[in-house]
Design a protein around this nucleic acid. Sequence first.
DNA 1: GTGATTGCAAAAATTTTGCAAATTC
DNA 2: GAATTTGCAAAATTTTTGCAATCAC
Lengths: 152, 152
Amino acid sequence: MADLRRKTGPSRPLGELTEALRRGERRVTGPRLAILQVLREHRRPLSNKEVLALLPQGYCDLATVYRSMHLLRRLGLVQRFDVGDGVARHELRDAGHDGHHHHLVCRRCAQVVAIDCCLLEEVERELSRHSGYQALQHRLEFTGICPDCQQR
Amino acid sequence: MADLRRKTGPSRPLGELTEALRRGERRVTGPRLAILQVLREHRRPLSNKEVLALLPQGYCDLATVYRSMHLLRRLGLVQRFDVGDGVARHELRDAGHDGHHHHLVCRRCAQVVAIDCCLLEEVERELSRHSGYQALQHRLEFTGICPDCQQR
DNA sequence: GTGATTGCAAAAATTTTGCAAATTC
DNA sequence: GAATTTGCAAAATTTTTGCAATCAC
C-alpha cells in the first residue's frame, strides 16, 4: 500500500532537506545527513531499526535514529506509517507537501492522479464546530482502478 | 452535517457476538463477555488499558484483554487502529456495512472521536466520473487539538 | 473429564530519557 | 564559545509468553 502511494521520479535533493533543517534552526549533523540519505535511497516506510541497519556499521546509535525521526517528522520531512505490527515506520515525503492536495492512486499499476482542489475545507470547519477540536488537519488518500487497468 | 459524532448507543446484540465466538469454537467466558460489553458501550477505538479501566475493578488481567483482543480480531469482530502514538486501539465492527467510517484524533493526547457518517461517498462518485477510475476506496483521518488539551 | 482460558509474574520488544562528552555554528 | 546533538546506559512503555490453577463445555 505504501508503495502505491509513491510518486515516480527522483526524491528531493539532499540540499533541500538540509535547508529545511536550517530553517527549523536545527543543526546539520553527520547522523542526520546519513539518515536522510537512507530515506532518500529507500522510498518506502522504514522502521528505525531498518534505518540503523542501512547505515554504515556502527555509524550512529538507535536512540539517535529515534530522535532524528521525531525531528524530521516535526519538520514535516517525513511521514509516519503504522502498518499494524506495533512498529512505527517512516518515509520521506515529497517536495510539494506544503501545497496541500490529495491523490488518487491506482491499486493495480500505482499510477497517480493529483487532485488539485482540497475537498474538505468546509467539512473541516463544520467538524471543528461540532467536535470542539481545533487546528484541524486531514490526510486523505483515494485508491481505485485506473482506466487502463480496467481493460486488462 | 447534523450529527457527525457517532451515537453512543449499543450496537450489535451481545448474542450475535457470543454466537461468533461459538462459531469459532471458542468459549464464552466472563472476561470475554465483559470486554465485549465495554466495546459495545464505547464505540470508538479503545486501547487495551482503557478497556481494562472500563471493566469492574480488578475484574480481569491486562494480559487477558490483550489475548481477547487478538481473538476478537481474528474472528473479525473488532478492527485495529493505529493512531500514531504507539498504542494499538480496537473498535467493534458493525454487523451490516463494512464498518467504514472516519476518525478525528487529537495530536496532543491521541484521544479519538469516531465520525459516524462517511463524508465522501458523493465525492467518490464525482471523482470516479471525472477520472475514470473505478472501485474507489479512501482513507481519511482528521487530526486536531481536543477541547481538553486546548485548556492545558 | 478434557481442553481452553485465566492470572500472575517474568520476559521481550519498542521507545524515551538523563547526562557527560562531542559536535555544529 | 554557546548551544545543540550524540552515545551510552538505564528507564519507561507496550505487548507477549510460560505455567499452574481455574473454568466452560
